[in-house]
Simulated scan of single mutants.
Amino acid sequence: MDEKNSIARNTAAKDRKSAGGKQSGPKPVTPERLGKIALHYLERYASSAENLRRVLMRRVLRSAQLHGTDSQALADSVDDLIQRYQSSGLLDDTAYALGRSASLHRQGKSTRAIQQTLSVKGVDGDTVGVALEALREEVGPDLDLRAAVQYARRRRLGPWRRDGREEAREKDLAALGRQGFGYDIARHVIGAETPQQLEDELDTSVEEPQN
């Protein structure tokens, strides 16, 4: 009986809260609120200008649907915010591309995968090219080989396998292919006799003078 009374009280409390409490869901978007949303997002994530624009426009369109706010006026506010942040340096697509490409490379991503990721975030091709060239100057010209070795090491593919290596060869090649690596690089990495062979090759490429 006590359990039934407790359930009834909880249900009644929820009903009262629903009837007299605050409405749930996002608040109407205003220009001031857009600025707060943008700064909060940039505090948590690195972003390109276009990516931030998309984030804010999703909020604008949702507010228009739920609250009837003026989506065109708010879109103009988004444009103003983006321009202001670019002028102040808070948004910098080149810096974003440099940092993101370096991070993706350390994760073992191919140059193709890096290009696709940055493109999806709205970074233009010229800026992506600048970022990849800077990465080559930093780590060496063999970006894909170095990234493929990193990926194979993390996933224990090819020479990092303890057993069943020959049986898994095609599977390992396909794994590198799905990451955007060309067949020649995939075959070279998976076919290496030992991990040390690949490590020595990468060390040698770093020691060679760059023109």
Rank of each mutant, 00 (worst) to 15 (best):
88 S>A: 15
189 V>K: 10
80 D>A: 15
137 E>V: 12
64 A>P: 04
80 D>V: 13
170 E>Y: 04
74 L>E: 00
8 A>Q: 02
160 W>P: 03
156 R>V: 04
196 Q>V: 08
85 Y>W: 03
77 S>P: 02
15 D>R: 09
210 Q>A: 13
38 A>C: 11
12 A>I: 08
158 G>V: 13
125 G>D: 03
205 S>F: 06
3 E>G: 00
67 H>G: 08
171 K>F: 09
3 E>I: 06
49 A>V: 08
93 D>V: 14
120 V>A: 01
20 G>P: 04
46 A>F: 06
26 P>V: 01
138 E>Y: 07
30 T>M: 12
116 Q>M: 04
185 I>N: 02
117 T>A: 14
87 S>P: 11
66 L>C: 04
116 Q>C: 06
23 Q>G: 07
44 R>V: 09
18 S>L: 04
140 G>M: 09
12 A>N: 00
192 A>F: 13
52 L>Q: 00
113 A>N: 10
184 D>S: 13
143 L>A: 10
139 V>F: 11
69 T>R: 07
208 E>T: 01
40 H>D: 15
66 L>N: 09
78 V>A: 12
25 G>M: 07
6 S>F: 01
69 T>V: 02
89 G>H: 01
30 T>R: 09
11 T>S: 08
70 D>E: 03
11 T>C: 05
102 A>E: 15
210 Q>T: 10
154 R>H: 15
197 Q>L: 04
191 G>C: 10
5 N>T: 05
48 S>K: 01
133 E>T: 06
34 L>R: 01
111 T>F: 10
128 V>A: 01
28 P>A: 02
15 D>H: 04
210 Q>R: 14
191 G>R: 09
127 T>D: 01
79 D>L: 10
119 S>E: 12
111 T>D: 06
118 L>M: 01
200 D>A: 05
145 L>S: 09
163 D>V: 13
62 R>W: 11
11 T>P: 03
198 L>D: 00
205 S>Y: 03
56 L>Q: 05
206 V>I: 13
127 T>N: 01
115 Q>R: 14
17 K>H: 08
77 S>Y: 05
151 Y>C: 02
142 D>I: 08
54 R>Q: 14
145 L>C: 07
8 A>H: 01
175 A>C: 09
33 R>I: 05
19 A>P: 05
22 K>L: 12
84 R>C: 06
